[in-house]
Design a protein around this nucleic acid. Sequence first.
DNA 1: ATGCTTTCTTGCCATTTGGCAAGTGATAAT
DNA 2: ATTATCACTTGCCAAATGGCAAGAAAGCAT
Lengths: 193, 193
Amino acid sequence: MGKEKLIQFLKSTDLVTPVKAEEIADHFAHRTIYKNQFHLEEGQVSQEYFFMEHGFLRAFAHDTHGNEVTTNFYSDNQVIFEVSSFFNRTPSKENIQALTDCEGWYITYQQLNMLFHALPEFREFGRAILVKGFTSLKIRMLSMITETAEERYAQLLKTNPEIFVHSPLKYIASYLGITDTSLSRIRKEFSKK
Amino acid sequence: MGKEKLIQFLKSTDLVTPVKAEEIADHFAHRTIYKNQFHLEEGQVSQEYFFMEHGFLRAFAHDTHGNEVTTNFYSDNQVIFEVSSFFNRTPSKENIQALTDCEGWYITYQQLNMLFHALPEFREFGRAILVKGFTSLKIRMLSMITETAEERYAQLLKTNPEIFVHSPLKYIASYLGITDTSLSRIRKEFSKK
DNA sequence: ATGCTTTCTTGCCATTTGGCAAGTGATAAT
DNA sequence: ATTATCACTTGCCAAATGGCAAGAAAGCAT
């Protein structure tokens, strides 16, 4: 049935046994998101808990002056949904859009709760995903406060080089908290070293 | 037994019924944290899920050059614990210290899991707390990226004036992502308006 | 292949923020 | 009361980042 990657991912957390992983995966359905399509649009309620088998997505919001700001990038083996909108059933302030064709597996909010109820192990898994997202955001916040734009750029290039393959620099710039002009200059300086 | 505030807080989320709120509260024990004492120290595993009835706390971490950075402030009616350390049972990179005498109620990791297991409603409550923390961090990140230091200062002063009552400005400065020198200048400019 | 749009770079200059050190005032300890 | 420490401010200047506009380069549509 082709859900090997999903099953492998569920098992990789060590919170879900092999047998239960299969059972959980049974409830996921296949989803393709074609390049430029939206997985979630501002104003909608995030409906799908989406495991990405392969592809590349960008999440972005609008600031008070209407400018786009990239809030996240997502690649293979990540779970994608807008936490606040998904769990509170409120309209999302974020958009999630495909930068390449994406393939993966999803369940709805209702199905997720059903599974959480039926399989406590999956609930632990769900929490682990949440904690992971929270933790990486905290790390990013710390780097926003303590590091220079160049240091943040160097770090991103080192730890997430695939972002530079799939995303235009202007999206990366706002993710780093700088303008595209500055990013261009930083890259110039950086390449000299 | 004096746990009215805790019970009220549990009920306020609408995820926990009045009866269950009492049952949950039964498992919490009283805790006083005196001014300057640590609720959590770097290197330790966050052990207590702490509901603050009243008081004021600051969380801080150290950056790569050893400088203190304030990561959060906590006041009345908040749940305090270091998410990553608490759930992953790993050493914390953060410290949580009292800026005033604090009083509240706590349970341990083991008790929390026991309660989660026994009372699914409390689990929902736990998730809501997590989602809330995540959401406010996302909002803060967006403001770090899109707003000037002065705008962030004005916003904090408006929405969390109590912080300025209890915390020295240098702690607030690093929370805002600026130096204490800059905050001082911003305040000077701001007061002219 | 041609033209159109988007992405990226660059020069010029403005603005924001930081670094350091001195100075003032407040608080705390003895 | 005296001293020491801490919190905050300020002046001077440096460094980082932004804004705008022009131009080069790359990608896309027809």
